[in-house]
Structures are given as C-alpha cells and as structure tokens.
Deep mutational scan, measured.
Amino acid sequence: KRPMNAFMVWAKDERRKILQAFPDMHNSNISKILGSRWKAMTNLEKQPYYEEQARLSKQHLEKYPDYK
C-alpha cells in the first residue's frame, strides 16, 4: 500500500469533522467539499501536510525498500 499524499493526510481528519457535523452526507459530496477546501488553502497552510507526506514516504521506503 502506498503512503498517503499531502491531500490524503489533511483530508483524513477533515472528513471526520464533516461527518460529525453532517452524519448523513454522502461520501461524494464530502469529497467535493474537501477538494474545494484544499484548493482554497495557501501553500503555507498546506506545508505541514507536505512535510507529513515526506515523513510517511521516507518511512515507507525504509520499511519496503523494494516497493515499486
């Protein structure tokens, strides 16, 4: 399994927040909201998630050095 990218790292927690506020919302609508919010964020706001992506990628490479 591939490591999560920056968007997926961010969306994991954001999806939970949306589901808590709107428990009956369909997944497709949640995904649209998440995509819009991510696009509206600045690079500075996204930076911590890119850093986490890099950490996860490094960890994955160490754990699975032959992964293609």
Rank of each mutant, 00 (worst) to 15 (best):
K1C: 11
K1Y: 09
K1V: 06
K1N: 15
K1M: 07
R2T: 14
R2P: 11
R2C: 10
R2N: 15
R2A: 12
R2G: 11
P3F: 06
P3H: 06
P3A: 09
M4E: 13
M4C: 04
M4H: 06
M4P: 05
M4L: 06
M4S: 13
N5P: 05
N5Q: 07
N5F: 01
A6S: 04
A6I: 02
A6N: 00
A6P: 09
A6C: 00
A6E: 05
F7C: 02
F7P: 01
F7L: 02
F7D: 03
F7T: 01
M8N: 15
M8T: 14
M8S: 14
M8D: 15
M8I: 03
M8W: 07
M8F: 10
M8V: 08
W10F: 06
W10K: 01
W10G: 01
A11W: 03
A11M: 04
A11Y: 04
A11Q: 10
A11H: 03
A11E: 11
A11R: 02
K12F: 03
K12V: 11
K12N: 12
D13E: 06
D13S: 08
D13Y: 15
D13R: 03
E14I: 13
E14Q: 06
R15V: 08
R15E: 10
R15H: 02
R15Y: 07
R16H: 13
R16F: 06
K17L: 05
K17M: 04
K17N: 10
K17I: 06
I18K: 00
I18L: 11
I18N: 01
I18P: 00
I18V: 07
L19E: 12
L19D: 03
L19F: 05
L19M: 13
L19C: 08
L19S: 09
Q20E: 12
Q20G: 04
Q20D: 12
Q20L: 08
Q20N: 07
A21S: 11
A21P: 00
A21Y: 08
A21D: 15
A21C: 05
F22K: 04
F22E: 14
F22D: 15
F22T: 13
F22C: 13
P23K: 05
P23C: 00
P23M: 00
D24W: 06
D24Y: 02
D24F: 04
D24M: 06
D24R: 07
M25V: 05
M25A: 06
M25D: 05
H26E: 15
N27M: 09
N27T: 12
S28Y: 05
S28P: 06
S28T: 12
S28H: 07
S28D: 15
N29L: 13
N29Q: 15
N29S: 12
N29I: 12
N29E: 15
N29P: 03
N29T: 15
I30P: 01
I30T: 00
I30Q: 01
I30F: 03
S31K: 12
S31R: 13
S31F: 07
S31L: 11
S31I: 06
S31D: 15
S31P: 04
S31H: 05
S31N: 15
K32R: 08
K32T: 07
K32A: 13
K32Q: 07
I33F: 03
G35K: 15
G35C: 13
G35S: 15
G35E: 10
G35F: 14
G35R: 14
G35T: 15
S36V: 12
S36L: 09
S36E: 14
S36H: 10
S36F: 04
R37T: 05
W38N: 04
W38L: 00
W38I: 00
W38T: 00
W38K: 03
W38S: 02
W38F: 01
K39G: 09
K39L: 04
K39C: 11
K39S: 12
K39R: 11
M41H: 02
M41P: 02
N43Q: 11
N43R: 13
N43C: 09
N43A: 13
N43I: 11
N43Y: 07
L44T: 12
L44Y: 07
L44Q: 14
L44V: 12
L44D: 15
L44F: 09
L44R: 10
E45V: 04
E45S: 02
E45R: 03
E45M: 05
E45F: 09
E45K: 03
E45L: 05
E45N: 03
K46F: 00
K46V: 02
Q47C: 02
Q47P: 01
Q47D: 03
Q47R: 11
P48Y: 05
P48I: 02
P48R: 04
P48V: 07
P48N: 05
P48M: 05
Y49L: 04
Y49S: 03
Y49T: 04
Y49Q: 06
Y50H: 03
Y50K: 04
Y50G: 03
E52C: 04
E52H: 04
E52L: 06
Q53N: 07
A54D: 14
A54Q: 13
A54S: 10
A54E: 11
A54I: 13
A54L: 09
A54V: 06
A54M: 08
A54K: 11
A54R: 11
A54C: 11
R55D: 02
R55N: 07
R55W: 06
R55H: 10
R55E: 05
R55I: 06
R55A: 07
R55G: 07
R55T: 09
R55L: 07
L56S: 07
L56N: 10
L56T: 05
L56Q: 12
L56G: 08
L56D: 09
L56A: 10
L56Y: 04
S57N: 12
S57R: 11
K58F: 07
K58C: 07
K58R: 11
K58E: 14
Q59M: 09
Q59G: 11
Q59Y: 07
Q59F: 08
Q59I: 13
H60E: 14
H60W: 09
H60T: 10
H60R: 08
H60V: 10
H60I: 06
H60A: 11
L61P: 12
L61D: 15
L61Q: 12
L61F: 10
L61Y: 08
L61T: 13
K63C: 13
K63G: 05
K63A: 13
Y64E: 14
Y64L: 13
Y64C: 13
Y64D: 15
Y64G: 13
P65I: 07
P65G: 12
P65E: 14
P65M: 08
D66K: 08
D66S: 11
D66P: 12
D66R: 09
Y67S: 14
Y67L: 12
Y67I: 09
K68P: 08
K68R: 10
K68M: 15
K68N: 01
K68S: 14
